[in-house]
Design a protein around this nucleic acid. Structure first.
Lengths: 334, 334
DNA sequence: CTGAAAGCGCTAACAC
DNA sequence: GTGTTAGCGCTTTCAG
């Protein structure tokens, strides 16, 4: 691997001149610059990012920490954020916490030790504590998707309360009056928000969501299946289900159909996220689409603003959800 | 951020002694070691990985480059490999090439500049050229999943030829004699292998796979839909379809069902990969499961062997596929 | 067993 | 404009 010295020698200049050419912005004589560029070209020189990072405190590295990378929503974060970061000449270190605060801490710590330029972070749950580490090290951080209410860190979320209300509005609009809801983990703030949005909307319509009609899942397929089994077993009375993500909705739908229920004739089902499976299912799944691409690009924009020392005005960006009506919901028959 | 000097000062020793304690293996007096550890503890010192990397040429970093991270198989690579790498105290830089050789080159180059300790690589296609860069820089590399035949780099794959034959065997065993196949891109070696395995098996049974019954897709849902539409439109005659991945199989199944065909009564369909959607579909999808976890752990094992300077004996590891029979395939009626 | 000193490859004052 | 020099924080000879 060639170093800046080799270039300097070949071009007949000092290393600092080469460094200036590399930096771009500094003043270098026209002819000198040409010679240096020539030398860089013939040697095929590429600056060592470790050395650059150590010296200048800018490692061209961004960390992304998510709870479960195999879930489509988080792998889409990796895709979108990865693309934006690459376009800016940075690399992306990804951390998959498996929903465990201990692993989360471990990742954040290693990112700090590596002096990454910034971190985008989708926390495990309210139990996350990693942010303390970050604050004292002053690494620019933005939270995406999984947030906590009482924090001062720039946060990009979808309007989860509004999404819950949107789901309720769609179902009530179809004439449904008895609902079941499959939530995510209650120690995740956005799950509580979604549920609150849904419940408060139907209350405003003079309807209620009984305790027994709410099942706490964990965003995985299996918990959607378990929810439906549980509803069936306990003879819960409802004509429409909303699940706080598509995977659980699909699990529930599958179980219900196999139990002989017709969807949407007997029961309407809707989910949230708009994953690929929602589209190819028969019946296709009515859902609420999250603006993931926009969230990611906003997060990156904010993060780079902070990296470049701008004061970050927006503390809390909340993007709207949109309703995607498909086949799994229909007018209430009863 | 505290440095090794702060620790040395507090412990009343030289920086080199602290460094020795950090390294672990070197000889340090028992009492001295205790004092140093004590100091590290009270300061909360963590070595700077950039500096360590620059000096020792070991950055505790692994690069993972994949064609499309949102596809479940690749996000599972990120999960499995990420876990294994983390267990060894390394971090993972991920690169998503979107199937473009240019982006692939860009990633490999930036990994080289960052002096990562090793790279795990799932190439775009036969058009990939990035390996040249790697070889000359001597960074340990292992190929996973997407390989090329004529290379000397350690490669971990599933037995794609065998998988094709396994699919054919299952279908022929059910009495099918007229097939359609939806392949991945033909410039990806493993796609050709899968198809060859399938075609040669049915030929051995005295059956044939006409040209018109093969549709070249691109592993995406849409191409499965297009394939089915094309088969329908051209009146292609078959009783069973095999698609080289589940997403395309699901797209085709959806299209066929909506066109009035009964699956599996009229047409049997099978896929490959065993993604989550395959399970929740109605009918659930018969498929071929790839041993992704085993492939990833083998890849990491080999890679770290190379990083630690062991001569890598295994040049080509080929793991077997397994058949998962579900509802979408049945005995041929005609 | 421990310390002093050199230097990984680069940037950023500081001089000229 | 360009060169000289001093480190960034760490590991690793080389002495002692």
């Amino acid at each position: 691997m060639s170093s800046i010295r080799d270039v300097a020698k070949l071009a007949g200049v000092s290393v600092s001149t080469v460094s200036r050419v590399l930096g771009g912005s500094q003043k270098v004589g026209k002819e000198t610059r040409r010679r240096v560029e020539q030398a860089i070209e013939t040697i095929g020189y590429q600056p060592n990012l470790l050395a650059q990072g150590l010296r200048s405190k800018r490692g061209s590295l961004i960390g992304l920490v998510v709870p479960e990378i195999r879930q489509e929503i988080f792998s889409s974060f990796v895709e979108y954020i990865g693309d934006e970061v690459r376009a800016r000449g940075y690399s992306l270190i990804t951390g998959n916490t498996h929903g465990q605060p201990e692993i989360e801490d471990e990742f954040i710590e290693s990112l700090v030790r590596r002096h990454v330029d910034g971190i985008i972070f989708s926390r495990v749950s309210d139990r996350s504590r990693a942010l303390g580490i970050l604050e004292k090290d002053g690494i620019p951080t933005v939270i995406i998707d999984r947030y906590l209410d009482n924090e001062d860190i720039p946060t990009i979320v979808m309007d989860n309360y509004g999404a819950g209300a949107l789901a309720a509005e769609h179902l009530v609009g179809l004439g449904h009056r008895r609902f079941a809801v499959i939530t995510g983990l209650q120690n995740i703030a956005l799950c509580r928000e979604r549920q609150r949005g849904f419940a408060e909307y139907i209350e405003r319509c003079g309807l209620a969501l009984p305790h027994h009609n709410v099942y706490e899942g964990n965003f995985k397929l299996e918990s959607g299946i378990e929810a439906a089994e549980s509803f069936l077993e306990h003879g819960i009375d409802f004509t429409a289900i909303w699940a706080e993500n598509d995977l659980m909705a699909l699990g529930a739908m599958n179980t219900l159909i196999r139990a002989g229920r017709k969807v949407p004739q007997d029961i309407s089902i809707m989910g949230m996220d708009d994953i690929i499976s929602a589209k190819i299912m028969i019946p296709s799944l009515t859902t609420i689409r999250q603006p993931f691409a926009a969230m990611c690009s906003k997060a990156v924009e904010l993060l780079f603003g902070m990296i470049n020392g701008e004061e970050c005005g927006e503390r809390r960006v909340s993007l709207p959800a949109s309703l995607i009506v498909r086949e799994s919901t229909a007018r209430c028959a009863t």
